[in-house]
């Protein structure tokens, strides 16, 4: 089980949270102007990184706020969490990527 650091509440068990997938996917500024390929990119295409990954979590059984986490998808190590709107902490080099 992951121990996730909520920026407001501190470290809690994963069961208190819900996952929100890839972080930093910006909503289109002018949706009416989007081509089909751009909609596909926004709605469906995902980076699915193997290694350090910026992702959203919701502290649903706590403060009920969304925030971002940097986690390694191979080792499950969590590097840090940060509030919505903040810049992500500097990512470690991708050395930990491979098994």
């Amino acid at each position: 089980m992951l121990n996730i650091d909520c920026p407001w509440c501190g470290k809690r068990h994963e069961t208190e949270f819900h996952y929100g997938g890839e972080a930093h996917i910006a909503r289109p500024e002018d949706p009416a102007k989007l081509e089909d390929t751009e909609w596909a990119e926004f709605l469906f295409m995902r980076t699915n990184t193997k290694g350090y990954f910026a992702e959203r979590w919701l502290h649903s059984h706590g403060c009920r706020r969304w925030f971002n986490v940097i986690r390694n998808t191979v080792t499950h190590d969590i590097v840090g969490s940060y509030k919505m709107g903040e810049k992500p902490p500097k990512l470690p080099k991708r050395t930990g990527d491979a098994k």
Partner: peptide, 13 residues
């Protein structure tokens, strides 16, 4: 498991 992973293991809950 809800989160992205390449680890071939998941959470006990």
């Amino acid at each position: 498991d809800s989160f992205n992973s390449y680890a071939q293991r998941g959470s006990f809950h």
